[in-house]
Design a protein around this nucleic acid. Sequence first.
RNA 1: GCGCCUGUAGCUCAGUUGGAUAGAGCAACUGCCUUCUAAGCAGUGGGCCAGGGGUUCGAAUCCCUUCAGGCGCGCCA
Length: 548
Amino acid sequence: MKKDLMKILRGSLDSIGVSPMPDIEIEIPKAVSFGDLSPPVAMGLAKQLKKSHREIAGDIVNSIKDSNIFEKIDIAGPGFINFTFTREYLYSSLKSLLSGRKSFLREEVGNNRRVLVEFVSANPTGPLHIGHARGAAVGNALCNLLEESGFEVEREYYINDAGRQIKMLALSVYSRYQQLVGIEAGFPEDGYRGQYIDEEAAELYSQVKERYKGVPFQECEEEIGGWAYSRMMELIKKDIACFAVKDFSNWVSEKDLYEKGDVSRAIKELEDKGFIYGKDGAVWFRSTAFGDDKDRVVIKSDGEYTYFASDIAYHRNKLERGFDVIIDIWGADHHGYIPRIESVMKAFGYDISGFRVILVQMVNLLKDGSPLQMSKRAGNFVTLSEVVDLVGADNAKFIFLTRKSDSHLDFDIDLVTATSAENPVYYVQYANARINSIFANAEAAGIDTENMGDVGFQVLSNREELELIKKLLAYPMVLEGAAKAYEPHRITFYLQELVAMFHSYYHKYKVLTDDAGTGRARLALCGAIKIVLGDALGILGVTAPEKM
RNA sequence: GCGCCUGUAGCUCAGUUGGAUAGAGCAACUGCCUUCUAAGCAGUGGGCCAGGGGUUCGAAUCCCUUCAGGCGCGCCA
């Protein structure tokens, strides 16, 4: 729909001598009385052409000749050009949609550009919690969306397996293990107190029995740490799998960056460029040269690298791999980190226009309307797998995707579970199941449900049917907008609108009527809705059940 | 104190990157199952887009400012 209008508008602007060709935006008007599509292009050109909005709009309309796809073209308001398509055009578009060609549902956004999306990247010290779940849902949907919009996408998980937290994980398990075998071992002040640590200690005992009983921590730290770490990674991968998120392409290890010498090399490179200096016995990166509010330490006075040092190496590594777009999805509590990472990228000589941090706001977990404080240290957090058990992966993902990622989200466990029947995800999925049921009934009645492209579409003539067709044809525009803005949640809202129209239509008109021609045409319309539903839900990572 | 995010219906949130008359879902109230799935439909009520100033053909959207909430400001990770 948009492609066709775009082509015509370009031709029109060219013929009235507009140069250079502006970016043309095409909007779907709010009210049906404003036509089907409406580009505010005349208003944008007023200054350049030194004419009034309506004059320009008139010129554009006059220059559009021999186009038979519009029923009418109106100039309205301050200079909107409202295009209304002919029914024949809608029918032939619907037929194209039904052909099943995916390309019909896509606008090209990516042009094979390579994009790296890093998300979740939770520390390997415990199971994923609900905050990670939100990051996973957003990241997964965004990757799917970009992939479907013509990007080459790599999904990446960064493992912080080099720092103090691994030692603390080892020490936590060690302490619980010693307690288990009857030795009074003090629990570390800032150790991980979750129940899963007890379980790991028990598992360790069942595997090695009393091998480490009374052994000083220093002597078994590496063994226990390595063992616990790999157990945690298994746990995390299992959590990700249970949330039905597509597999990550890469698992990048912080430890590897150190061992390969990437960290020292990256800092050396910054030093060569003159952005590194020593002060107070420490080594600093001059991030203030790039807009950060203070310089940052990369090597502490005790000779240890800071966490930031490996992040420099990691982002250097991302840049080296030659992506056109680099997206980091972070918890919003890390937002203060953005200026220093951007500084790093600038210091390496890269234009940061291809770099984007998407902040995912914290999930405010509620129970009975009151906040549930979560802390990994205290161990009273709700894990991702618990949430999935309680409300289901589809349900949770859909909720996360019904708001933009940087707005706070109240997730009331009781509310979501108790009123799950009223959850919007069911509303959308129900439409799919309904359509499927109609098709089953049609087949049972001996109606031909194949070759939907050959039905007589002309009988689809009432207001609801025409509006449904237009809504379907707008789908590629929604995807395009969502992909350009990196905002998968737009798809969720589109789905709710589309499905609302369908449910309403379903109640007002019977699909399988006595008239065979009407029945098949309506069936075809339902088939088209099902195609779009399946496509969109697939991008969101939500299933489209055949039956409910 | 400085920086970032948020502020839209009673509640939870959208708002097509500055477009036309402000949108949805819950909750409340009124109706609809002998007809393809009632996890559904039809209808009613509900707004100083936090306040104020500016930018322009046009502002919920951009700029300034005030207020309220959240988060961040380590030689922690």
